[in-house]
Amino acid sequence: MDAAARDGALRHAETCAACAARLAREQHLTTALRTIATDMADLSAPARVEAKLLAAFLETRANAQAATTTDAHDASHAPIATPAHGAAVAPVELSAQDEVAARRASSRRQTWRAASVATAIAASLALVALVTLYKQFTRTVPSSQTTNVAPQQGGRESTPVAPVVATLSPPPNSAGSTGQAKPERPQPIEHAASARTHAKLARPFVPRMIESRQVIDGGSAIFAAGEGESAANHAGGASKPNETESVTEFISLVAGAPAATPLESGQLVRVQLPRAALASLGLPLNAERDNEPVKADVLLGNDGLARAIRFVR
C-alpha cells in the first residue's frame, strides 16, 4: 500500500466515526488471525506419518528397482545400436523440462500399455463368452422337423382332436427310404414344450400333449376301425400304457371308416382333451367332473393326420 495513501486514510479515520469503527474492526480481525497463526505455528504432523511415508517410499523404490532390473534384462537381449565412427558418446544432461516431458511420456506409455492389456483381456473374455453361447445355441436348435397337424377333415368334424404340434420323426430304419436326413438327436422334451406353448395359445379347445410321441414303425401295418389296439400292439408295444393306467379301445377318426386304411408308419401322441370330447365320440360323460381334462392317445399317420384315438384313465 502506498504510504501516502495509508497516512491519508489514518488521518481520515481520526475524524470519521464510520471509518474509525471499520478500521477498528479490521484491525481486530487481523490481530485475531495473527493470534491463530502464532498459536498454531508449532503444530506439525505426528511422527507416525513420517514413519509410514518412509516405509511406503522404500517399498516403492524397491518395486521400481525390481522393475528396472527386469527391463534391463530384457534390454540386454535387444540389439544395441552402435554410434557412428568417431562419434563421441557423452552423457546427456537433461534439462528440467526435458525431464518432465520424459517422465510424462513414460507415464503415458505405461497407461497405454495397461490399457492395451486390459483391452486384450476383455476381448478374450468376450470371445470365450461368444463361443460358449454359440455352442449352447447349437445344442438347443431342434434337429427334427416340426409341423402343425391340421384337424382331420371329413365326416368327423366335431372330433375334439384339435391341431397338435407333432414331430414327424422318421423311423430309425426308414430314414434312407424317406430321403430325409436322420436327425442327430431327438428332442422330445423340446417338442413337448412346443406343443405346450401351442396349446396355451389355443385354450380351451386345444389339447395339451403331455407325453412324447412314440414312433410306430408300422411297415405293412393295417389300421381299420376297431383295429387300433392291434395296430398299437404291432408297434412293438411302444404304445402300451402304464400299468396303472387303463385305456379304451382305439376309436377311428378316419372319415367314412373304410374297411382298411393302410398305415405305413405313425406316432402315438399323449394329449389332454376337454372331457366333452368323450361325449362327442359317444362315450359316457360324468357331469360332475366336467371341468377336468381327460388324457388320450392320438394315433397320427405319417401324413400327419389323426387316425385314431383312445382315452386313458
Binding site: L43, S44, L54, A64
Partner: peptide, 24 residues
C-alpha cells in the same frame, strides 16, 4: 532418484505447513 534421505528432508521441511493448512 531413490534417495530416502532427500525424501525425509523434503518431508520435514514441508509437512508442517501442509498439516496446518489441512487442519485449518
Amino acid at each position: 532418484a531413490g534417495d530416502a534421505d532427500a525424501f525425509a528432508a523434503l518431508y520435514r521441511r514441508r509437512q508442517a505447513g501442509i498439516y496446518r493448512f489441512a487442519l485449518q
